[in-house]
Amino acid sequence: MAPFGLKVIRGAFGFGERVAPALTGRAAFELFCRTPSPKKMTEGERRAVTRASSFMSEARHHRLKTRSGCIVAHEFRPQGRAAAGTVLVMHGWRSRTEYMRSLIEGYRNAGYKVVSLDLPGHGQSPGRRLNLVSAVEAAAQVGQWFGPFAAVVGHSFGGAVAANAAAGSVPGIPPLATECLVLVAAPSSMPAVFADFSRMLNVGPRSQKAMAGRVKRISGRPLDEFMGERQLAETPVPTLVVHAPDDKEVPAWHAQRYADAGPHVRLHWADGLGHRRILADRAVVTRAVDFVRKRHLVVH
């Protein structure tokens, strides 16, 4: 967001906090859910998508209906052999399947079929709106078509979606069936995510309360219940958490919160890899694949 535009928005939210916090809170929530315009990719993003065009051509593309619209899932089959199982991969905010290429190829090379979901408003999935409920709903729809899964793997917001989907944290949406989870650079606390957003845009406490009320109306649960350590503690699915101590987008304490959920959660620190470089690191990919393969062999 340009500095001038941010200054105007901060001023508007500051004024709204004083005169109409309910209205301001609703507006802030809608802005929070607004996804980036696909027409405004950076030059680096365009290059990444172009470089991955041949990789994407290897997939079967499925358009699935959800209650709030439709989504696109990309099915990558292992080459030359029957699939050992199916892995669901989910990207983060302002991301798409192309950016998950290293992890997808790692699981394919290990013999897994990989289904990668473009979350609503991202990649090839249409729309300009995304929240945790619509994301969990999208994951559940993919689960109906392709599950159960050997693993669900998520980066950043996609990791939070994976944890919430597996825990069945949204009333009315059944838990996503998976043998294990891999959460890469994932936020564990949705209240903290909302608080960071509010600080950035000068959303005051009364407006924040209205935002939280909007969450409860949409999800059926209070905002403060969307805590990753609580969800994983109540859902003892073997989980690998991979995080970089220098991650500036999702601070490292989020990973430690997940790890505190219980002995079924393993934490690996990927030093020096930040929030996005972590996705392409060979050692991280190897660790993520081996974690799933070992648990899959135990189950089967």
Rank of each mutant, 00 (worst) to 15 (best):
G123E: 00
P36H: 13
D271T: 08
H254V: 02
G213T: 08
K7Q: 11
G11Q: 02
L279H: 05
R129V: 07
V136T: 09
F76Y: 13
L176R: 00
E43Q: 01
S57P: 13
F146P: 10
F194W: 06
V89P: 06
L103E: 02
N202R: 07
R217C: 11
S134H: 12
A140Q: 07
S37R: 05
S57D: 13
F149A: 10
G111D: 10
F4P: 09
R94A: 07
R257D: 11
T42Q: 10
F32Y: 11
V87P: 00
T97L: 08
A151L: 01
A140R: 04
P120L: 13
G85H: 14
E45N: 08
R18W: 14
F146N: 14
G85V: 14
L119R: 01
K7D: 05
A52Y: 12
A139L: 01
E225N: 12
V241Y: 08
M200S: 02
L176H: 00
K294Q: 15
S54L: 02
E179K: 00
P78L: 15
G213Q: 07
S68Q: 09
A84P: 09
R217L: 13
A139Q: 00
S68A: 12
G147Y: 02
A270M: 04
A261Y: 03
P205D: 15
P222F: 15
G5K: 12
E234V: 00
S198R: 00
G159I: 04
S189F: 02
M227P: 03
I71G: 05
A82R: 15
V133W: 11
A244S: 12
V89Q: 03
I218E: 12
A244G: 11
F146V: 15
L132I: 13
N164P: 03
G85F: 14
D290W: 06
R266I: 03
V241R: 09
H264D: 11
I9A: 15
A48P: 11
V203I: 00
L232A: 04
A138D: 06
R214V: 09
T66C: 01
A186P: 01
G274M: 12
H122W: 12
A186V: 00
R101N: 06
A270G: 04
K209Q: 14
G106Q: 05
L223I: 07
V161F: 09
G44I: 09
S54K: 02
